[in-house]
């Protein structure tokens, strides 16, 4: 069952087209990873989904109800916000409040729960992300990057969202903490049947957690499929990205080949001669004669 649907989404800032005809679907309980290079447009897409930016064309619908379109205003989106939980890149915890207050803030403002019930929910949320109750009195500045991410996740969970969105959740974390966050994302899906959209450029995490991977490049979706399918993709750019190769080592003879099927234009296609010269320069030992 499709929960969230993005259709023909377009966005430009000035003359620069940032998103160009984006189409995506996320099913209930599914984990979708949106991957792509820095500057490819994935964060702009993320901000569209959470209603911080509205599109110039196309729409986003949640269970067939349009939640974002060029005519939507911020106040219109507010009634859908409760269904989304968001973990920002640096967790975006409120600096002036301790962990407990960070978690309690939305509950105190949007629910009529008693303080006792609020404290119970906070305890459960912290436990869900593997943190003990003693963390409630810690200030965000006293926490490590991984702990901040987990507290950010706990804050998103207190409102019991249907869809969790993660913006680069593992980008600044060490491998052990990355694994913990990945396990948490999977755990939430298994325990709560939570739908997740993860924006990342960490291909290892995407392989581990994703049911589906969508790859965005220069504002277009150039791949949408399973982790197994992306591994076997014959698109040179996708292979270059998932293997983490530098451009010059790959597809030197026809560097633009990957772009042609997707309409992307490259400013300065390098001829094989230039590529060979660069290759020679890099691999010629100092002092070696021609």
């Amino acid at each position: 069952m499709v929960l969230l649907k993005i259709e023909h989404l377009k966005k430009h800032f000035g003359s620069q087209v940032v998103l160009d005809d984006i189409n995506l679907e996320v099913g209930k309980g599914e984990i979708l990873c949106i991957i792509g290079q820095s500057g490819s447009g994935k964060t702009v897409l993320f901000r569209h989904i959470i209603g911080l930016i509205f599109p110039d064309g196309g729409l986003i619908s949640l269970e067939n109800e349009v939640i974002s379109s060029p005519t939507t205003r911020h106040v219109d989106f507010n009634r859908f916000r409760r269904r989304f939980g968001i973990l920002f890149q640096g967790a975006a915890l409120f600096d002036s409040m301790n962990v407990g207050e960070n978690l309690a803030f939305p509950l105190r403002e949007h629910t009529s729960l008693t303080e006792l019930e609020i404290q119970k929910i906070i305890g459960e949320s912290l436990e869900m992300v593997g943190l003990k109750e003693i963390f409630k009195t810690k200030m965000p500045s006293e926490l490590s990057g991984g702990m901040r991410s987990r507290v950010g996740l706990a804050r998103a969970l207190v409102m019991k969202p249907e869809i969790m969105l993660y913006d680069e959740p593992t980008s600044a974390l060490d491998p052990i903490m990355t694994e913990k966050i990945n396990d948490l994302i999977l755990g939430l899906r298994d325990r709560l049947q939570m739908t997740s959209i993860v924006v990342t450029h960490d291909i290892g995490s995407a392989y581990k957690i994703a049911d589906k991977i969508a790859m965005i490049h220069e504002g277009k979706i150039i791949f949408n499929g399973t982790p197994g399918e992306i591994r076997t993709s014959r698109n040179p750019y996708i292979q270059q990205f998932i293997r983490g190769q530098r451009k010059m080592h790959y597809a030197v003879e026809d560097e633009d080949a990957y772009a042609k099927p997707f309409g992307a234009v490259h400013e300065e296609p390098k001829s094989p001669d230039i590529a060979n010269k660069l290759f020679d320069r890099r691999f010629t030992l100092p002092g070696a004669g021609a």
Partner: peptide, 17 residues
């Protein structure tokens, strides 16, 4: 300004605060 750059203002908005 620092709340804006660290996305705390965005977090407030998505939490309907």
């Amino acid at each position: 300004g620092s709340m804006k750059t660290t996305e705390q203002l965005d977090a407030m908005q998505v939490l309907r605060l």
